[in-house]
Nucleic acid binder design. Structure first.
Lengths: 128, 128
DNA sequence: CAGGATCCAGCTAGATACTG
DNA sequence: CAGTATCTAGCTGGATCCTG
């Protein structure tokens, strides 16, 4: 952790086009709920209210919007069973599943460096 | 790409605590400018207006705010040379440099799957 | 059950003007 | 040069009510 070898993995690829792509994905993934939905669907298909209960604090409106956006981008599949009452199952597409890997890498970094960030914040805030 | 091996890298770690950490980092990194600043500083230290020119479209206010936030979290170092005119150099800390690796992984995913996302969007939007 | 439709508070980020 | 201060449009997201 915090390895400072100067073999730069990123410098070579720092082209405007690639950065545009990174920013698009970060915007897609960096919102409040998208990744929580994706992570919840990791275990398998879930229904709407099942997701609602699984994700603490999400409103029905935000769950709907988030699912629609993920579906639009081909990350989530929506399967409607026209019964009474209606049944809708959400699941990750292959694309959606493949996204979990880089996001998990970010998660590992987050866990490993959380303490560094917290202490840096405390230090910064201390010097008023 | 799009490998669907069911060895789940993420399921095992899908604990609330880890997800909280991921969300914090995504919020930190998922905003409009932070990663552009980090990527720009990859090449080496830069001064304020140098960064301003390097990052297309960023306002002076947003650059200030983004740099302060990154400094607070210990990702960026701010070095002031009290001269006239003043000189301030910004550089990545070790923590900041270490972040580039997982973000680059996300960048690779973005580049590899951009076309899938674009066509998924087109398909979704086509059905009224 | 699975949403759609409204309304609204709060935050984000841009524009502009000014300063040590 | 490197900011701070102010004002504001627009977006994000929550609460609430309604429906097939």
């Amino acid at each position: 952790m915090l390895s400072d070898r100067h073999t730069d993995v990123t410098d070579a690829e720092h082209s405007p086009i690639r950065c545009q792509a990174v920013n698009d994905i970060l915007a897609r993934v960096g919102d409040k709920w998208s990744m929580q939905v994706v992570m919840s669907l990791s275990a398998g298909p879930m229904r709407f209210n099942e997701l609602r209960r699984a994700i603490d604090g999400i409103s029905q409106r935000m769950l709907t919007r988030t699912l629609r956006a993920l579906e639009r981008d081909g990350l989530v599949d929506r399967e409607v069973t026209p019964s009474v009452p209606p049944r809708v199952d959400y699941s990750l597409t292959m694309l959606g599943r493949s996204l979990r890997e880089p996001v998990a890498a970010l998660g590992v970094w987050a866990m490993e460096n959380r303490s560094h960030i917290d202490s840096a914040r405390a230090r910064f805030d201390a010097e008023e």
